[in-house]
Amino acid sequence: MKLSRRRRQRILRVAGYVVFGLLILAVAGAADWGQLSDAFFRTDVAGSMFPEAITVALRNTILYTLLAFVFGLTLGLILALMRLSSILPYRWFATGYIELFRGLPALLVLFMVGYGVPLAFPAREIPGGLYGSVTVGLGLTAAAYMAETIRAGIQAVPKGQLEAARTLGMSHLRAMISIVLPQAFRIVIPPLTNEIILLTKDTSLVYVLGVTPATIELTKFAGDALNQRVNPTPLVVAGLLYLVITLPLSQVVRRLEHRAARER
């Protein structure tokens, strides 16, 4: 019997679903769920973490992320503009900075800022204490990534936009602010959100600077709870709380992309 093309395709698709489903079931069936839930899903351990998990740890994680993001975005924008500048030394500096900070582990940079800056400038300290150090320490690395993203965004805006603005008598700076950058930022919203999500997870490095119960963030908080209760359930709680931050972010991007698509 000869099958029609459509029928053949449908059989293949169903076969695909079946194989995929069986594979997942096989893995799930092989796992020892009793052991796993005793270790990772102990409600009493989870319950003992609240409300501090939210009022302190989650709050600080969000705060560190936002501070570093704003710092990184500002510095990244400046670096992107330097990278596109017609002035050669600016371009050199921006390129050197980006290559350096993209190449170093965030942990190392954070460490250098936390312990190196006080040594280099003993009379002054970074304002804001630990919050300031984290802002700069994580922001310096984030800026390098964001500079490249923003540069690509600016270059994706057609050259005619700048020409039209200049033709209307706008200065280069005014044309960048009113015409080019707003369009560039629309283009880079999705990759920039990626940056926030990466940054959110990088806040787990803050512990190297030594946190107090008031400045503790999610990962360190979970780590402490793990040591105290000798049970890894806190890691699962922390993981879920990270998702509480990152999932809505993805949602926001989707909405912004939708709006930008309408105006384009």
């Binding site: 057609p158 005619g160 936009q161 020409e163 039209a164 603005a165 200049r166 033709t167 209307l168 008598g169 706008m170 200065s171 015409i179 707003p182 369009q183 629309r186 105006e263 384009r264």
Partner: peptide
């Protein structure tokens, strides 16, 4: 040049309207 350009209107082949 910005002052001179204010007195010169220009229309481009690709329109170059500000999309945002």
């Amino acid at each position: 040049i910005d002052a001179v350009r204010r007195g010169i209107g220009m229309v481009f082949q690709q329109f170059n309207l500000f999309g945002h």
